[in-house]
Simulated scan of single mutants.
Amino acid sequence: MALATYALLCFGSLFSIVDPFAALPVFLALTGGQPPESQKRTALRASLTVLVLLLTFGLAGSLIFKFFGITMSAFKIAGGIVLFGLGLEMMRAKDSPMRSTKEERHEAEAKQDVGVIPIGIPLLSGPGSIATTMVLVGKSEGPAQHVAIFIAIGAVAFFTFLILRSATLVERVLGRTGINLIGRIMGLILAALAMQFIIDGVREAFPKLVG
């Protein structure tokens, strides 16, 4: 696979699972009373949280696999199942408990700084985005594709910041219906990606069975 194609695949996969558009209603609910500069700082902290967390798991993924004795094929299957469930929730335009629970959102309402928790973690960078990052790193072939993944993570974090800092404008332009439509499209892409992870994992785990 060409490097540019692989980088685009990584960006599309990660952007679909991070899905900053789906985070807009929660972001506005938690920061709507803040002045623009405070909203901008919260958006920056949330985006940096995404960047740091995904880069960390991208770099440490192989060590985690070795420590727990997990094979890449097993992780692809498990990660695919998790992502498929999340994709179905997104297509139904419902808030998934895998992204954030009601208790976490209620607790966040009493906090002054919500950029890291719950917006950065787990709303934007939760189990799904971590699993996607680690599977993509496992699928990469050579240092160039590894670098492409990290560039894609940086691009996702950057666009997440742009969308969150313009949350009021984006919601006004798209409306709730438009945001839900984008979420459904992202969910469909994510479900297809999850099925590909599962298929690849089964092929690798049972080469004779599916060969």
Results as ranks from 00 to 15, higher is better:
G12T: 13
S62W: 03
S47H: 10
L3A: 07
L190T: 04
L53D: 12
V50Q: 00
L193V: 02
E89H: 14
G120R: 02
G33A: 06
D95I: 09
T49H: 01
S100M: 11
A43N: 07
A74L: 06
S47P: 06
G87C: 13
E204Q: 12
L124A: 07
A23P: 14
G69T: 06
I121G: 00
E37F: 15
L24D: 14
S125R: 05
T133Y: 12
A157Q: 05
G115M: 08
G32C: 02
L124G: 03
A29P: 00
T160R: 01
G178W: 03
S38Q: 15
A4V: 02
A78H: 09
I163F: 13
P143V: 06
M91H: 14
G183E: 11
F68A: 09
Q112I: 03
L209Q: 15
Q34C: 07
E104L: 09
A78P: 05
L44G: 03
A7K: 02
A46H: 10
S96W: 09
F84M: 05
L193W: 06
S100R: 02
L124D: 08
A194I: 01
V26A: 10
G61F: 12
F65R: 13
E89F: 11
D95P: 10
E89G: 03
T56G: 13
R176Q: 15
K139G: 04
P207V: 05
V147T: 14
G138F: 04
V116W: 06
L44K: 10
L30V: 14
E107S: 15
F197Y: 15
L51W: 14
V114E: 02
S16G: 12
D200G: 04
S125C: 11
I163N: 10
F65T: 01
R165Q: 15
L190G: 07
S100G: 05
F159P: 04
L169M: 11
P122W: 10
V170M: 03
Q145R: 08
L54K: 00
A60N: 03
F150D: 11
I153E: 04
A29Q: 09
A93C: 09
L88I: 15
G61V: 01
T31H: 14
E107V: 12
L44F: 15
A108V: 05
L59P: 08
S16Y: 03
F15P: 12
E103K: 12
E89N: 07
R105F: 09
L83P: 03
V82H: 04
G87K: 07
V147I: 12
L209C: 11
A152T: 00
L28P: 10
E171R: 09
Q196P: 08
R41I: 00
P97A: 08
K208C: 00
R165C: 05
A22M: 13
T5C: 04
I199A: 15
S38M: 15
G154I: 06
G32Q: 10
L28S: 09
G138R: 00
V18G: 02
T71K: 06
M186W: 01
I153P: 01
A7S: 04
I117W: 05
P25A: 12
F197D: 08
K102V: 09
E109F: 14
L30Q: 09
D95E: 14
F57S: 00
H106F: 13
G154N: 03
R105G: 04
F150Q: 05
R41E: 11
G58S: 08
E103L: 09
Q34R: 15
A7F: 04
I81C: 01
L181H: 01
K66A: 13
H106T: 15
L88C: 11
P97M: 06
V52G: 08
A148G: 03
F15A: 13
